[in-house]
Design a protein around this nucleic acid. Sequence first.
DNA 1: ATCATGATAGCCT
DNA 2: GGCTATCATGATT
Length: 193
Amino acid sequence: MNSTIKKDFFLKPALQLAKELLGCILVHRTDELELSGMIVETEAYMGPDDRAAHSFQNRRTKRTEIMFHEPGFIYTYQMHTHTLINVVCGEIGIPNAILIRALEPVDGIEKMIEFRKNQPISNLTNGPGKLTKALNITMESYGKPIWLPPVYIKEGIKPEHISSGPRIGIENTGEARDYPWRFWITENKFVSR
DNA sequence: ATCATGATAGCCT
DNA sequence: GGCTATCATGATT
């Protein structure tokens, strides 16, 4: 009874999904190994009206295309030297997504340490670029469903308290900079900052 | 605090 | 085909 999440879990408003993903487990399972961590930090990106979103003003390109499709698919993109992973949400045609910003390591920690060049556990998955490296998630995941292996989300725990605040790394986006659309599990030590 | 890194997109000519 | 910016990170001052 693996508590895999069903597809329609993702069909809900972005801000609600961003909070409900906290405490869920992100898994990368292959034949050889299973790497996983509990989601402890997320950010919502609200398509048409959010200057910080790649899909601002419904910008529809090869990169953002997946966000215009069904919720529950993976939107990955490359940022300098790192891959970042998002979950598409919103109804079809509404290009919203949730960025997964930090995990608390669960399974395969030894392997994660390897992928992360012998960093201490406290520094394995506490950032969006770090967690993809630790779980060996690449651009290959773009457009794949996030309710089925190899990269999928399953049920975890319900956090006691959730905090929210402005998002990170979007200093140059006008008023969108101040929207409190970043969520994290209060007091969790794997939050990115 | 700033800087180098260096994949890819998006936009311009 | 060139130019510029980017939802970061690690190293360095």
